[in-house]
């Protein structure tokens, strides 16, 4: 028996919004420790890794490890049927071929349940090595979203250059070129507005704007985003999900031919 309850549907709606542009389906691996989803986008350029810790759910029961393959488009449709302040309970029997989403209004007067067929997905699991990144940038997630949106107008790809002075985002194409430089915040009044750079070595990497823009769909989940970079390895774009866990996007760099 698997049962996981959150007092508020909003967070789950935001999580679905953050993955559904990249992934059509995904396997939710449920265990004692929580729920994990790892999946590559269709073109195998990026990887989404979602972790939700069991102890942060309002109720969590997982008697046996369970892998539930879900169509994320269908799941998003179902979650749209929940009001933001509804309690959500996800339920499945062991070895079941369906999962049930139950929504309960705050006054307990409306209860709805939606059953969804599970899918058998033959998805590859990738082993992600622990990496000490040369540069780790923390910045406001809204600012990152804005930069990705603005620079995508100029080119399909964006160069991110990080030094100890700051981080520079550049794009150039037929229309012209764009550069956005962010200096490290000297005086941190509000932590969520800060730009903080931890640098071992300067890094310059090129990434496809299309994927970066897809990652920024997670912006409503967290005020800050963390970018981790090292030469010749995938960029990690991480959004914390309050005390529930995190979503990490890995993006393979563009390399010189």
């Amino acid at each position: 028996m698997f049962e996981a309850r959150l007092m508020n549907a909003t967070i789950l709606k935001k999580i679905l919004d953050a993955v559904k542009d990249l992934l059509n389906e995904g396997t939710f691996d449920c265990s004692d420790s929580g729920i994990q989803l790892q999946a590559m986008d269709n073109s195998h350029v990026s990887l989404v890794s979602l972790t939700l810790r069991s102890d942060s759910f309002d109720k969590f029961r997982c008697d046996r490890n369970l892998s539930m393959g879900m169509n994320l488009g269908t799941m998003a449709k179902i979650l749209k049927c929940a009001n933001n302040d509804d309690t959500v309970t996800i339920k499945a029997q062991d070895n079941a071929d369906t999962v049930t989403f139950m929504f309960e209004s705050q006054n307990h007067e409306k209860v709805s349940d939606y059953e969804m067929k599970l899918m058998n997905l033959d998805q590859e699991h990738l082993g992600i090595p622990d990496t000490d990144y040369s540069c780790v940038v923390r910045m406001p997630s809204m600012e990152f979203a804005r930069i990705c949106r603005d620079l995508a107008q100029f080119s399909e790809s964006m160069v991110i250059c990080c030094t100890k002075e700051g981080v520079k985002f550049s794009a150039s194409g037929d229309l012209g070129s764009a550069n956005v430089k962010l200096a490290q915040t000297s005086n941190v009044d509000k932590e969520e507005e800060a730009v903080i750079i931890e640098m071992q070595e300067p890094v310059t990497l090129t990434f496809a704007c299309r994927y970066l823009n897809a990652f920024t769909k997670a912006t409503p989940l967290c005020n800050q985003v963390q970018l981790s970079m090292s030469a010749d390895v995938p960029l990690v774009v991480e959004y914390r999900i309050s005390d529930l866990g995190h979503i990490r996007y890995y993006l393979a760099p563009k390399i010189e031919e």
């Binding site: 350029v45 990738l126 393979a252 760099p253 390399i255």
Partner: peptide, 14 residues
């Protein structure tokens, strides 16, 4: 010209 690399080039297949 730069070329998009695939994510599987960087991570091991379990």
């Amino acid at each position: 010209k730069s070329k998009q690399s695939g994510i599987k080039n960087y991570f091991s297949t379990k």
